[in-house]
Amino acid sequence: METTAKYKRLLPPMRGLARDFYSWCKKHELRFQKCSACGTWRHVPREMCPQCGSFDYQWAKSSGRGQVFSWATTTQPMLPHFADDVPYATVIVELDEGVRMATWVVDIPPDQLRIGLPVEVIFDDVTEDVTLPKFRVRRPA
């Protein structure tokens, strides 16, 4: 874990619903909004349920399991903060609950990514304040 001052990559701004989402991550829990009225899971966090219009929701705990849906492999530095990481893939993972999120799959190189690859969440305490959910390949036990 690094101090915020030493961490070179970008951090999410801790405000509003993003602060709520990442606060659960800091406790090593992946939680998404789940509509209290119709039960629909959603991500990115929103004020209302786009499905039914309800303002009521809980932060429901995800299984943390999902599969690779798509990815973008960055092969030349686009942001100075990630120059040392090239090549890296920003992966879309579809969780078993149906929501999808941008993340990293940490234990395989970008060229081994495949649609449908089973993955599970891990938590990377990147600074003393921020924990980012990332994923690793899920292997049969």
């Binding site: 970008l10 999410p12 990815w71 492999t73 960055t74 920003t90 941008a102 993340t103």
Partner: peptide, 21 residues
């Protein structure tokens, strides 16, 4: 800024690569 940039994605070539891939 909240959900993509912490994972290094911030320019059109990257976010449309999601679609294209």
């Amino acid at each position: 800024s909240e959900y993509y940039m912490p994972y290094g994605l911030a320019v059109p070539a990257q976010w449309f690569a999601w679609l294209a891939t």
